[in-house]
Structure formats: structure tokens, C-alpha cells
Amino acid sequence: MAPPRTAPTITWAMIVVWLVFASVPLWIEKVGLYQYLGVEILIFAMYALAYNLVLGHAGLPSFGHGAFVGVGAYAVGLAQFNVAANLWICLAVAVGAAAVAGALVALFISHRRGIYYALMTIAFGQIFWFVAIKAHSLTGGEDGLLKIARLPATFGMTTFDLTSNVALYYFVLVVFAAVSFLLWRIVHSPFGRVVKAIKQNETRARFVGYDVWRFKAAILVLSACLSGLAGALFSMAQTSAFPDVMSLHYSGYVVMMTLVGGGLVSFWGPVIGAAAFFLARDIIGAVTTGWMLWFGMSFVVLVLFKPEGIAGIYQSLAQRRAKTAAPVVAPTSQVR
């Protein structure tokens, strides 16, 4: 009997993505862009992948994910100032803080789904954003939390200095590779399949014995942790943390990236979307100030006509090519 399709531990797509990203610092300046852009794309690609765990994989439309990014971003700075100036400790604190924030939100919303879920996450996102702006003594308010250092990364005896953008880029790439590998495993693990089942049919999942609430809470916490990690890297990149990543706008941007790239149909879609978002910002933005207008309009068009996004367009093109390439052997009168 044919064994079911199982996902390989490492896929070609994964290797290609990693290699393409690894080559970026070699050519990005030659095409007129700059190293820091690579760092931004990589961090947001990671964030969008983590976000897609909730939107694409669990079918839970969170519009407040910026909260977790922000929590991670502030936590890494605060840990640096108040706990220890050690990169690993700071990152761990950031992930932990985001997990706590995720758990808090999950506690209130894990019995919801659909539009209610979206509205409640907007409300929570606004709460976190509002606190970040008003809690001046902790976050610096709208001025931001400044002077966050890019701490060196120590691996046993060797230490890497991350102050240059290229060094930071490769550090972020290592984290990105680890996170994307982990997410790939999660998606194909028993846990991930149950979450996917819950997305399709909560009632049935319950009646075959799964505690739906726990899975929905767990996936949100998991996504929050990784978003927090992305936030921590982002404040390292910016050497500061600002409340705007927590705003409804930024929370919406990650939804746009994920959808435009094709997160609903493809694991790597969010990565494509994040790259498209920042390239559009810099390339369209160089021509006109209203780049968001154009990006927003293409988002609207995609939602209306092709919610599967860029990855979906590629997939249907590939299918069409496969169809025309395959010769019709016999008249296919048999309709299944």
C-alpha cells in the first residue's frame, strides 16, 4: 500500500531560500540597494512566517500581532539595561516576555474564531500599543527606547561582533534558518496537523477527542514567541525600540505581507510577501511618496481576485504549464 505523503526533513525549497538569502550581502549594494534592507527583510520574513502559523495554518485572523513584536523589542532592550548585557540572555528574555503576552491574550480569545477573533486581537493589539506609548518610564513613550546595543554573539570560545550590518545580517540569517526549520517541523508534526484539522472543522476535531481550546492557545503562544524573537532582532537592528511596530497599521502590514506572498497556500509565501513589501517600499517609494497607496491597491486586488497571493499565482501558472506540456494520451471521457 502506498505510504502517505510525508514531508522531508530538509526540502530543496528550504535550501534554496537559505542560499539565496546567504548570497544577498554579496550583491545587494551592486543593484543600488543597501545592506540594512536585507536585515529588515529577513527579520520581517521571520515575523511573517511566525504570523502565518496563526493565519494560514490555524485559520485564526490575528490583527494584533504587532503587540508580540513590540514586547520582544522592548524586552530585549530592557533586559540589556537591567538584567545582563548578554545576547543570549536578552533574547531569551524577549522570547519569554512575548510568550507571557501571548498566553495572556490566548486566555481571553482562544474560544473565539473568525471575525470575533480578529476584533478581539485588534483590541488587545491596541491595549499593548497604548501601554507602550503611555508607560514612559518603561518604554520611553513615543520617543522610544534608545541606545540598545548590538551585543556580540558568543559561541563558546569564539565571539562575533554584530555592529556591522553584514555581520548582523548573517546572525539574523542563522536565526531565520533555525526558525524556518522549526516551523517546517511544527507544521508537519502531529501537533501541527491537529491545528490544521481544527482550522477546517472545529466541531469534528472536538468530537474525535481534541481539546480545541488548548491547541488554539498553544499555537498563538508559539507564534507570539517567534514574533517576539523577530521583534528582539528588530530592535537590535534599529538599536532602539519604538511603539509604532505595535500599532494597528504595523499589525496590518504583516497580514498584508503574509497574504500578498501567498501564506494561505504556501509555507514560504510569507517570505516572498515580506520581500515584496520592503522592495515595494524602497523601489516604488523612490519614485513616489505614496507607495503604500500602490501596495494597498495591489493588496485589495489580490484579496478580490487571487487571495492565494504571489505563491498562488506561481502555482497555477506551473499547473497550467504542466497541463499543456503533458500530451493527451487518450480522450478522457471518464469523468471522475
Binding site: 514531508a7 508534526s189 502531529p190 491537529v194
Partner: peptide, 17 residues
């Protein structure tokens, strides 16, 4: 997905389902 074996492993986030 409905088999008890899958349910028993449903906390596992790493291995192939």
C-alpha cells in the same frame, strides 16, 4: 488525524506526523 495514536502524540511538535 482521528486515530488514538495521533491523539497520543498530539503534543509533539517536531516529529513527522
Amino acid at each position: 488525524i482521528a486515530l488514538p495514536q495521533t491523539r497520543a502524540r498530539s503534543r509533539n511538535m517536531v516529529r513527522e506526523a
